[in-house]
Design a protein around this nucleic acid. Structure first.
Lengths: 190, 190
DNA sequence: CGAAAATTTGACATGACTCAACTGGAGTGG
DNA sequence: CCACTCCAGTTGAGTCATGTCAAATTTTCG
């Protein structure tokens, strides 16, 4: 099951067999049913989470329980609330399975040990974070420079298979507008 | 001059004297006058850039040369176009000095060598990238969940000294609205 | 001091939201 | 396997936050 993770790490920083064994010893697998939560507002994020299969969403809620989706994560992506993880304080975010999902987790208590035993992983996580940072910057740029309609058309052109996997109201939230607005964009398409 | 960088690294991953010397040997210092460019659209980003003093902004431009400010970086922050740096391809971004600025640079050609000689820096850059990623995620959340006026009031309350340092039209661009709109928000304040 | 840049102000335009009603499909239970 | 419910999606009317454009004013700086 953890093969997906080892495979992913090896793409960036090849590991020896011994190192792979250490990684395996420091990870655990969790199966999430659709709609099940990996993290809820008020809890502390105690794990780094790698998605071996399925899809997670991370969202915040306001006083009226309106949800704003901040991220999706699918196969071979990490989903981590770094802020809560590092400060050990309760998060204001929620992480929930959009589909049945398999997550490989590294717990706070073993992360530092793991990094000491396999220092290569510092490099791996550096590269992962830098890529995610780049993606996050691009997203900000896109939100700032494009209209809602442009964002939708770009996203559904770029990730048609992913758009199929999620309900429209989640896509609307992720793209930063209302489900009604998305519906109207789609209606125009004819 | 590079003291600021060593000091910053030491806060996260203490270095030996030898290691500090290696870092010094792999960095160069550049002084930028206000409005001078560190990177222009069409060039390749060939350096990691640490701000020892001053302020940089990173912005994109559209067909009509309208600027959208994506990031500011002040003392003790890094400003890097990871995408261009890693792919070796020309960037679509610009990085310009908002004030007279001192930048400490690590060139592409020496970065890998430096990381080999001082592997601790993998950890340092991992932590830096994870923090920046967290900040970027918070920014997306803020843009998605707050009105322009709320973003302005929050930002100027949180960073009053920084708001003093930059022209209003730059702040407006960074916060995602027009200078006219910012002016109107301020007028209401009375 | 004068020119250029930044900011302010006002009139008007519009992208996107809200709210409410309606439609249609997916489960669920009898 | 039908009837019922419930949730996602659609549609329309009205509204509001913010944008656009242009002119007036203030500030900056050579």
């Amino acid at each position: 099951m953890q093969d997906a993770l080892l495979h992913h790490i090896n793409k960036f920083t090849p590991l020896t067999e011994d190192e792979e064994d250490i990684v395996l010893a420091c990870t655990s697998v969790q199966q999430l049913k659709k709609k099940e939560f990996l993290l809820k507002k008020g809890q502390v994020c105690t794990t780094y989470n790698f998605i071996a299969g399925g899809c997670l969403r991370c969202f915040s809620t306001d006083d009226e329980d309106n949800e704003t989706i901040l991220q999706f994560a699918i196969e071979n992506w990490w989903m981590i609330d770094y802020s809560s993880f590092n400060t050990r304080k309760p998060t204001h975010l929620n992480i929930q399975a959009v589909e049945n999902t398999v997550v490989i987790k590294i717990h706070y208590d073993v992360l530092e040990t793991l990094l000491e035993k396999v220092p290569k992983l510092e490099r791996y996580f550096r590269i992962i974070a830098q890529r995610a940072l780049d993606a996050s910057h691009r997203r900000i740029e896109y939100v700032y420079t494009r209209s809602g309609e442009e964002r939708y058309r770009y996203f559904s052109k770029s990730f048609p298979q992913f758009v199929q996997r999620i309900p429209q109201y989640m896509l609307a939230s992720y793209l930063g507008f209302t489900p009604e607005f998305l519906s109207k964009i789609r209606a125009k398409k004819i």
